Every structure is written in structure tokens, then in C-alpha cells.
Simulated scan of single mutants.
Amino acid sequence: MTNLFSSFDPASNFSLSLNWLSTFLSLIFIPLTYWIIPSRYNFIWVKIVSTLHKEFKTIMNNKIKGSTLMFISLFSMIMFNNFLGLFPYIFTSTSHLAMTLTLAHPLWLTFMLYGWIHNTTHMFAHLVPQGTPPILMPFMVCIETISNIIRPGTLAVRLTANMIAGHLLMTLMGNTGPSLTLLILSFMLMGQILLLVLESTMAIIQSYVFAVLSTLYSSEVTYDH
């Protein structure tokens, strides 16, 4: 590696751009759930999906039927990619803005188009929070507009930064291993295991945050008169 960040470059490992195919590796694990007798993993996954479906349906107030399935699929895809990135020699596609922006920007754009075309009055009213003094209204419109525009960027950067930060810390600790004494090396291994557990929880949390925020953004524009 020429520098630390080259480990996140898909072209630096084996000089192949095929590392982006790691996004589709999750498809290998899906057929395992389709047995005649459902396995325990299948029961766990069905429980997770049903819990998410109930939560997303509550957030969206059941406005557009079937939309929860799209957000559950988004959650599943991001979570699988986050977990796959923890394995050695598998490229973490969710640590790149090219991937996360591709997920966040079209979602936000479709929400905005739907909101401004179908619920124009509500979208204008949403720019000024209820109870705002008349003097502050122009400033609030500017603030709300900017916060609305940067939403896809914050969604994408949050996921990317969290994935890069943990992987970079693990890489830094791992690179110092050969030059350490046996005692310090044992402490470093314990630290790496703890970091791995932390990254595993972050993989679930970040995919959940991405899906929930997308659901919240969609619930704002699908306003019932």
C-alpha cells in the first residue's frame, strides 16, 4: 500500500476492478434460506423482517402499501455489504461514496419530485415550522431548504465515514503487530477482537439508520389531506 487509504481503493487490490462484484456476494447466502424445512437462521431472518415491517409501517402510517418491502430490501443489502467487508480480502463497497450516494440520491430525488408534484402546498408549509415568528420566517426557509438539500449527502457520508473509520483503525492496529512484543501483541489482539465486535454492531446500526431515515423522509412527502 502506498498509503492507508489505498486499502479502500478497489483498483489497488490485485489491480482488478472486479472488487465491486463483492456487492453481489450476498446473493450467495440467500438460497440457503429456501429449504423445505426452515432453518433457525430463516426463523431469525423472518423475525427481523417482520419487526422492521411493523416499525416502518408505523412510521409511514401505512400511506403507500408495499413501500416497507423496499426499505427492508435496502436495509438487507447495506447490512450484507457491511458484514462482508469485515472478512479478509473482501472489498467493502459501502465505504465508498460512489456506492452510498447511488443509494441515497435517487431515493431523495424521487421523494422530492413526488412531494412537490402531488403535495405542493404541504411542501411549502413544511419549509416554515409551526409557531415561527414572522421575523425569522425568511431565515427558517433558508435553513430548511439547505437541510433538505444536504439530506442525500448526510445519508451517504454517515454510512461511508462509519465504515471507513472502523476499518482504518483495525488496519492501523494490525500494521503495528510485527514490531510489538508478545505481551503488547496479546493486548492488541484483544483490542482487535473488541473492534471487530464494535464493527459488527455498527454494520447493523448503520444499515438500520439509513433505512429508517429514508422511511422518515418518505413519510414527510406522502402527506394525506
Rank of each mutant, 00 (worst) to 15 (best):
H225T: 00
N19Q: 12
I59C: 01
L107A: 05
G85E: 00
F187C: 11
T145A: 00
I135Y: 15
N175W: 15
D9V: 08
I64H: 04
S214W: 09
F24I: 08
N148T: 04
I48K: 11
P178S: 01
P134A: 05
K63R: 05
V46S: 06
F210L: 05
F83S: 03
A98W: 09
M99W: 01
M1K: 10
S95P: 14
L18E: 11
G153I: 03
K57Y: 02
K57W: 07
I184Q: 04
G177P: 03
T222Y: 00
L127F: 00
K63Q: 02
S207Q: 13
T51P: 10
W45R: 11
L84H: 05
T154N: 14
S147K: 06
V212Y: 04
G191R: 00
S22D: 10
A203M: 06
F91D: 04
W116P: 00
L103K: 14
S179Q: 13
G177W: 12
I146C: 13
T132H: 03
I164A: 06
H225A: 04
F24W: 01
T160E: 11
V209S: 09
S95I: 15
N3A: 13
N81I: 04
M77H: 15
T100Q: 02
S7K: 09
T215A: 08
R158P: 07
A98Y: 14
Y217T: 01
N148L: 01
A125Y: 01
M137F: 13
F124V: 05
S39D: 13
T145W: 00
H122T: 03
Y208E: 01
L113D: 07
L97W: 07
T58N: 08
L172H: 09
L216D: 14
M190R: 10
M60C: 03
T23G: 04
L194K: 07
S6P: 06
F24N: 15
F111W: 07
F80I: 03
A165V: 15
S95F: 13
F187Y: 13
S214G: 04
G166S: 13
I150P: 02
F83N: 12
K47C: 13
T23C: 10
H118P: 06
L185R: 12
F210M: 03
T181G: 04
L155D: 03
E199Q: 15
